[in-house]
Design a protein around this nucleic acid. Structure first.
Lengths: 206, 206
DNA sequence: GCCACCCCATGACGTTTGTCATGAGCAGTG
DNA sequence: CACTGCTCATGACAAACGTCATGGGGTGGC
């Protein structure tokens, strides 16, 4: 039999320990070769352009630009490169954003390395793979009921700023801000904006 | 030269991917042997009692019981076992809690595997190792200026509950709760309790 | 034994929110 | 074109919140 051309992988994760360990484990798979590693979003992008991998395995949380942002850029600049996201704490909204960005694989870090290798092959073959549990969460969380402005105002309220400050930053009147916060909270089912922010965060709506 | 007795290591992390990868990397070090792995706090404890490792490498965030809690239990039940914490997002307060629990090593996951192996040896030799950057953060964050009750009330306020609910859960009058929240916020330098909660969290005071 | 500090409470005050009614301008849809 | 839904605004009222003054009971230090 002929030796197939190896599947070229880019690995991006800001934690050296994990990235290195992962590279070592993936190296055990004969058909995979890690051609580049990156510790930040921008670096991942640069590395991808330089080494043109078949599959980019991106951590969700990285300094500079998160995995989804990198995936979006990659899709534009390197369309042949498949992207997938690996994450510790997968929230529903992330998954949705990722799929919208053209990501083809979304897995939590609780999978085994062997399984990850399989998924990399799946993704490379042009198929998609989404962790069943995360998918279920995403479905049960549903779509955001918030309008654009409601989400916007809620986000500005995220760090506990008073209404006056939110109004200024959003260039809205204080009354309008309070109306939006009120309707957002009632849609979410929260008693006040602070729990509303928390719940919206959990569901990936902000 | 005689072959020294290998250094027995317990690895606890809820992310299979990372734990497995780590185990593989540490296995490359000739003097280290990973004798047990665990995916949760209670499991880590049970495994430690069963296998009696020399050093327990614990992830900070695990289901069941976090790394520091496990370390506390280990100190009581297996005093000869040295403990160390590995974490992704190290906040000052965690470090403080960890040291108080008798943890001898505290490192972020941004270190390399080789470096981790060195630190495991350092810890086993009876020395301590704390990541310099985390140590600096901890020092600059300083000690909590909050009294016991202030911290307690602040914690109850963490999820955005109204004063009435906090008062009930703390068995205090609403007025008292508001006084504590007020003084806590002013000590922290926050404008309201919500930002106070956030800042206190960041500094590890709750 | 005085003093400092924490704990808990009460009452009162002004401010900030949450909520509701109401309405105008402006999309997109059937 | 009528209708619906989003955006933005105003005004008003009740509830929640932040702040201050005040006071009693407790613990620990000097």
């Amino acid at each position: 039999m002929t030796t197939a051309r190896p599947l070229r992988v880019l690995l991006a994760d800001d934690e050296h320990l994990i990235r290195g360990a992962l590279a070592a484990l993936l190296a055990l798979e004969e058909d995979l070769v890690v051609v580049a590693e990156a510790a930040s979003g921008p670096e991942a992008l640069a590395m991808a352009l330089a080494h043109r991998p078949d599959v980019a395995v991106l951590d969700l949380q990285m300094p500079g630009a998160d995995g989804v942002k990198v995936a979006t850029s990659l899709r534009a600049e390197l369309p042949d490169c498949r992207t997938m996201i690996v994450t510790s704490h997968g929230r529903p909204g992330h998954l949705k954003r990722a799929l919208a960005a053209g990501v083809r694989g979304f897995v939590p870090k609780t999978v085994s390395a062997r399984r990850l290798a399989e998924i990399i092959r799946t993704v490379h073959a042009g198929n998609r793979y989404v962790d069943p549990e995360l998918a279920a969460d995403a479905i049960s969380a549903g779509d955001s009921p918030l309008t654009v402005r409601e989400a916007e105002v809620l986000e500005l309220a995220a760090d506990g700023a008073p209404v006056a400050e939110i109004a200024e930053r959003a260039s809205l009147s204080q009354g309008t801000v309070r109306n939006y916060l009120s309707s957002a909270a009632s849609k979410i089912g929260a008693e006040n904006r602070h729990t509303a922010v928390r719940l919206a965060r959990e569901r990936g709506w902000v």
